[in-house]
Design a protein around this nucleic acid. Structure first.
Length: 888
RNA sequence: GCCCGAGUGGCGGAAUUGGUAGACGCGCAGGACUUAAAAUCCUGUUGCCUGUAAGGGCAGUAUCGGUUCGAUUCCGAUCUCGGGCACCA
């Protein structure tokens, strides 16, 4: 009987499902003496196109690890589920005029059967779907937790809102307002990325993707729900340290959070009305304060109307109007050419005391820092560009270290040591400081700006100090004078959490007619989506839910008042923020996850997925996890201990797979033709898991050939019986050595965590090639090999295991152990080289002494040829490796 | 512009982290089996030069330079490609 992959794979897939082979027992049934291992895949979005070849890559890797860990005696949790809310399902539904639920159900069915056809060892009893009411009930519950919590800056953690201390002297509305301003989930009028074609706002993170798809994104002010992730910026940064994640992903998150250290500085403003005002700015270079020659405010800054002079009113208003129409993208695209308008107002530089003009310009962002900056054109490229365009003063206040000796001088006087710089020094040096003077001239003329660190010049009490010290001294000075302080800023913004879509989790909130908002109680959950056969978009920017009046209006449970439901829905990220917790306790009706179970299984020991989630999903999930931890629902601070990113699989032409290119490979075809085992093996054999690599259909055929060779090694093709060369005898030394070498290589490859399964497969191929050369092969050896193969190609392994006379599934059979002594070769090839060039090789006994090796090298004919008539300078002998003779 | 990552045969990739470059697979070439083909099995396969042959020589891991007895591996500079961020003060 030939290797019939279709038949064999179906047989074992049915077996595993019917016997619930991979069911992970409930916590009380578990053997707690065994270690636990939680292997997680990033849950897929079940798209209409079905699985693509990229999915099985990561899933095969986690499946290999899961199967290996089971054989190693671990309690393994390896679940799968569906992230099914979101745009694609919704748009499909709108086009087909159906409820998205219908489409999703079909996609899930297809995905599930495709995954089962690959023989993945998921515990299907724990399957979750983010769009199930019983699931999103808890997503809503978590939103309520966020809504009903605040962040206590003193202890740096979230607390229930009841514990919030409310400032005295507020009336009821004032109190309510204050509480609302502290919630982790809050509503705010803010500029959003509005996409007219999709009829929704997008998170900053989602913008590039939609623009790539050809949609337009513009800025628009809207009332939006946000989550206060910025409060967690520092903890998200700090805890990154302890995670075993790829360095590049850590770096990506690090940059995304974007911590900047510096100071806030208060500037007094001389408004045209003569009133006293002041404004804070943030700077990372307080040491350059003496060089601040003008200020720039973001066009959206609230103070502008107060300070603008009558003469400039019109021009300023015009500029503000124009800026408000531009999207962030347009603002960035037009960045090459700086624009701006003088407000007519001035501020006082607190260090130099000089009066400086205030401008507005859209290169200053309202959403970062205080929305206003001090401009130091000499030492910031953007400020320089602006200063040149508007003819503003430029003062060099930092010199590169190379001019240190001529930029300032310490002079002893009767009063002690003083430092001089600037004009006086120039004269004193009498032309000696030519290069330094050139540098200053270049800056003053606006030809260049120096943004690096160096030494302060022209800076009063800072002059002569290196940048780091100057920063410190300035901060101290500001704090003493009470006009500034040390401060930190993050690039991370609060998470825009609402979408004007139908297909998402409804917010558990209602609005009263007077504008009050009320959060529902836990027992009111879930707030179900309306059951409609189809629906349309509103075109106004509101969610389609706003048109479904039966659903929209309801009455308040307590007062019976007529209320309107919140019509926004949550973004797709919401459901995937906590799914890994639901797997642990998927049927629990009391709580999203029992804390005892969480304590046992968390954190995730291995998490594999694509790097496209490096900053979004992985940051959001960490944030939610920390909130739940703070509120006492979890025992772990971080969810994912080890993370690994699989690389992308490109088309056979080496380019990203896409329908338009026609280079998409359908996994179904591959499984039919070559089998799931071949598919799994090939995807692991292509190269290291993290590498981006092109698909090769000839390659998968090669792996099918290998599995056929394995099959024929054990089974006689014609009779279907065990091959006559498999004998029930003690294995030969040669066979033992091959087997133990293979066990060693494969065990190490898995244990080291590098996910380089390609070399393990190569080792299996070497093993099989060797066995083919032998006339007889011990059955014991073959059985051990089948166990080694089983995590990679489980179907053929189970089949061969059974045919070799084993009644039980090998899924929980002990992983083979290796004997180090048996992996050692008796004969080793050593190289003899002269001056580093290999001249000869020779097989010698292993562990031969260095002296003997040296002697053998000198006996060698080729070596002699190359050292003849030369002086021997040095001899290097490396045991079991080589001898190098250095001659002159 | 800034931050990551990577450059090794015709192709995917190995190389115990400073010690025999090219494991394993694909492709290709040759042979065996076959009436023939497929399948299968075996052999060869970095390039150039040289030899009838066994063999021998030279070059070679993006480029240039350095450290070293010895460098794909370490250091410096450059180039190319991929990914991320992008007026964040």
């Amino acid at each position: 009987m030939k290797y019939e992959h279709l038949q064999i794979e179906k047989k074992w897939q049915d077996f595993w499902i019917n016997n619930k082979t991979f069911r992970t027992p409930e916590i009380d049934e578990l053997d707690k003496s065994k270690p636990k291992y939680y292997v997680l895949d990033m849950l897929p979005y079940p798209s209409g196109d079905g699985l693509h070849v990229g999915h099985p890559e990561g899933y095969t890797a986690t499946d290999i690890i899961s199967r290996y860990k089971r054989m190693r005696g671990y309690n393994v949790l390896h679940p799968m589920g569906w992230d099914a809310f979101g745009l694609p399902a919704e748009q499909f539904a709108l086009k087909k005029k159906i409820n998205p639920k219908v489409g999703v159900e079909e996609c899930v069915k297809r995905f599930r059967s495709q995954l089962q056809a690959l023989g993945f060892s998921y515990d299907w009893d724990r399957e979750v779907n983010t769009t199930d009411e019983e699931y999103y009930k808890w997503t809503q519950w978590m939103f309520l937790k966020l809504y009903n919590s605040y962040f206590d800056d003193n202890v740096n953690k979230a607390k229930p809102i009841e514990q919030l201390e409310i400032p005295e002297g507020l009336d009821e509305t004032g109190k309510a307002k204050y509480v609302d301003s502290q919630r982790l989930a809050f509503i705010s009028e803010s500029p959003v990325n509005w996409c007219p074609e999709l009829g929704t706002v997008l998170a900053n993170e989602e913008v590039p993707e939609q623009i790539e798809k050809g949609f337009t994104v513009v800025r628009r002010m809207m009332k939006q729900w946000k989550l206060r992730i910025t409060k967690y910026a520092q903890r998200l940064l700090d805890d990154l340290e302890e995670l075993h994640w790829p360095e590049n992903i850590k770096k990506l998150q690090y940059n995304w959070i974007g911590r900047s250290d510096g100071a806030t500085v208060r500037f007094e403003i001389k408004g045209s009305d003569g009133k006293n005002r002041s404004i804070d700015v943030f700077t990372t270079r307080p040491d350059t304060l003496f060089g601040a020659t003008y200020m720039v405010f973001a066009p959206e800054h609230k103070i502008i109307p107060e300070i603008v002079s009558d003469g400039q009113k019109e021009a300023v208003q015009k500029y503000i109007d124009e800026a408000s129409r531009k999207s962030d993208l347009e603002r960035a695209e037009l960045s090459k050419d700086k624009t701006g308008v003088f407000t007519g107002a001035h501020a006082i530089n607190p260090a130099s005391g000089i009066e400086i003009p205030i401008f507005i310009s859209d290169y200053v962002l309202m959403s970062y820092g205080t929305g206003a900056i001090m401009s130091v054109p000499g030492h910031d490229e953007r400020d320089m560009e602006f200063a040149v365009k508007f003819g503003l003063d430029i003062i060099p206040v930092v010199t590169p270290a190379e001019y240190k000796d001529v930029a300032f001088k310490k002079i002893r006087t009767e009063e002690g040591e003083i430092i001089i710089s600037g004009k006086g020094l120039e004269k004193m040096l009498n032309g000696e400081a030519k290069e330094f003077n050139n540098y200053c001239e270049e800056i003053k003329k606006g030809k260049t700006s120096f943004t690096g660190e160096g030494y302060s010049i022209n800076s009063g009490f800072l002059t002569g100090l290196p940048t780091a010290e100057a920063k410190e001294k300035m901060i101290k000075w500001l704090e003493e004078k009470g006009i500034g302080k040390r401060s930190t800023n993050y690039r991370l913004r609060d998470w825009l959490f609402s979408r004007q879509r139908f297909w998402g989790e409804p917010f558990p909130l209602v609005h009263f007619e007077d504008g009050r908002i009320k959060a529902l109680k836990e027992e009111d959950l879930p707030v179900r989506l309306p059951v409609v056969s189809s629906y349309t978009t509103s075109k106004t920017g509101e969610s389609p839910l706003s048109l479904i009046e039966d659903w929209l209006y309801t009455s308040d449970k307590d007062t019976g008042e007529k209320v309107k439901r919140e019509t926004n829905t949550m973004p797709q990220w919401a459901g995937s923020c906590w799914y890994y917790l639901r797997y642990i306790d998927p049927k629990n009706g009391e709580i999203f996850c029992d804390i005892e179970k969480e304590k046992y299984w968390m954190p995730v020991d291995l998490y594999i997925g694509g790097s496209e989630h490096a900053v979004l999903h992985l940051l959001y999930a960490r944030f939610w996890h920390k909130v739940l931890f703070d509120l006492g629902y979890l025992t772990t601070r971080e969810p994912f201990n080890v993370l690994f990113n699989q690389g992308m699989i490109l088309g056979e032409d080496g380019v990203k797979m896409s329908k338009s290119r026609g280079n998409v490979i359908n996994p179904d075809d591959m499984i039919r033709e070559y089998g799931a085992d071949s598919m799994r093996m090939f995807e692991m054999f292509m190269g290291p898991l993290e590498a981006t690599k092109p698909w090769s259909t000839e390659g998968i055929a090669g792996l099918h050939r290998f599995l056929s060779r394995v099959w024929r090694l054990v089974i006689d093709d014609r009779t279907g019986e065990i091959n006559s060369k498999i004998v029930d005898e003690e294995p030969s030394d040669e066979q033992k050595k091959m087997l133990h070498t293979t066990i060693k290589k494969m065990t190490r490859d898995i244990e080291d965590g590098d996910m380089k399964f390609n070399t393990s497969i190569a080792q299996m191929m070497i093993f099989v090639n060797e066995m083919y050369k032998m006339e007889k092969v011990s059955k014991e050896i073959v059985e051990q090999f089948v166990l080694l193969l089983s995590p990679y190609a489980p179907h053929i392994s189970e089949e061969l295991w059974q045919r070799l006379g084993n009644n039980e599934s090998l899924a929980y059979h002990k992983w083979p152990e290796y004997d180090e002594a048996l992996t050692k070769a008796e004969q080793i090839t050593v190289a003899f080289s002269v001056n580093g060039k290999v001249r000869s090789k020779r097989s010698v006994d292993a562990d031969l002494s260095e002296k003997d090796l040296e002697q053998l090298a000198f006996d060698d004919v080729s070596v002699n040829k190359h050292i003849f008539g030369k002086n021997i300078v040095k001899i290097i002998v490396v045991k079991n490796k080589m001898v190098n003779i250095v001659v002159k």
